[in-house]
């Protein structure tokens, strides 16, 4: 099967963030970026399905130059080639604008299956994959925790996570967009051989014109949402912060838990 996986590059969730000077987003200088967590799982799922069915995985990413690093990583673990939506006009989009651009790129090829992550760890719209499915006119499932191909790859039995420990199991006709949840599998690491091979694999750039889109339909200009400011929540509001080295802080905490909170 020919499988596409959409991967987004996002700040490492453990990175220390600073608000940018204009107050509208984070300062990207020196910020470590990684492949979005659920996208790593989507990629692994794509690779497994491609291996099982004999096929290939194509990775797509929308974002600035730095995104190439994420694409290279995906090529190193086994994706065959990559498509990069690099034009600045693509950037800053909400789920509808980003989904429109990715769908246009996907429609140029003939995929049997499109995989995305379930939610991006930065803006977290949880909707880009569903928007892609809408444009392609394919079924979609959000929060996928299991995929089993059936009927000679014409359909799939898909497990969808629901709240508090229950899963929905359904049959979905392919092609479809499956929005993969973290934890579905255990992503592999790149081998040295894979890293070397990735250097020779193609990362093709796609411009808005290539996709038949004009600048007003995509990116910030094509979005209904505009982020006007970001700020840190009031840290430790209500929390008593216990100072000192580990030993001192621990001793104070135990005393508080005994005498003040009375839970020990």
């Amino acid at each position: 099967m020919k499988i596409a996986v959409c991967i987004k590059q996002v700040p490492n969730t453990e990175a220390r963030l600073r608000v940018s000077r204009d107050g509208r987003w984070v300062d990207e200088e020196d910020l470590p970026f990684v492949i979005n967590e659920s996208d790593e799982y989507a990629l692994e799922e794509g690779l497994r399905i491609a291996e099982k069915t004999g096929g290939e995985v194509v990775v797509l990413s929308l974002g600035p130059e730095r995104v190439k690093e994420a694409l290279r990583k995906a090529l190193a673990v086994g994706a065959a080639r990559a498509v990069h939506l690099a034009d600045p006009a693509f950037s800053g989009g909400d789920a509808l604008a980003t989904g429109r651009a990715l769908a246009a790129a996907l429609a140029r090829d003939s995929f049997d299956l499109v995989l995305t992550g379930s939610q991006s760890d930065d803006v977290g719209y949880g909707g880009t994959g569903s928007v892609i499915a809408g444009h392609l006119g394919w079924p979609h499932v959000w929060l996928v925790m299991g995929v089993e191909l059936e009927e000679g790859n014409a359909s799939a039995k898909v497990t969808r996570e629901m709240e508090s420990g229950v899963n929905e199991v359904s049959r979905v006709r392919l092609p479809a967009v499956l929005e993969v949840q973290a934890g579905i599998n255990h992503p592999r690491y790149a081998s040295l051989k894979g890293i070397m091979a990735a250097k020779k694999k193609e990362i093709a750039a796609a411009s808005p014109a290539d996709l038949g889109l004009d600048a007003g339909q995509i990116g910030a200009a094509g979005s209904r949402l505009e982020i006007v400011a970001v700020s840190f929540p009031e840290s430790g509001k209500g929390a008593q912060m216990l100072e000192g080295d580990a030993k001192a802080a621990a001793a104070k905490l135990v005393e508080k838990l005994q005498k003040e909170a009375r839970v020990l």
């Binding site: 963030l17 984070v26 803006v123 977290g124 209904r224 505009e226 982020i227 970001v230």
Partner: peptide, 13 residues
């Protein structure tokens, strides 16, 4: 946004 590390203010256009 950012897993709750930041709060964003958003306008709809």
């Amino acid at each position: 946004v950012m897993g709750g590390k930041l709060q964003s203010k958003v306008r709809v256009r």
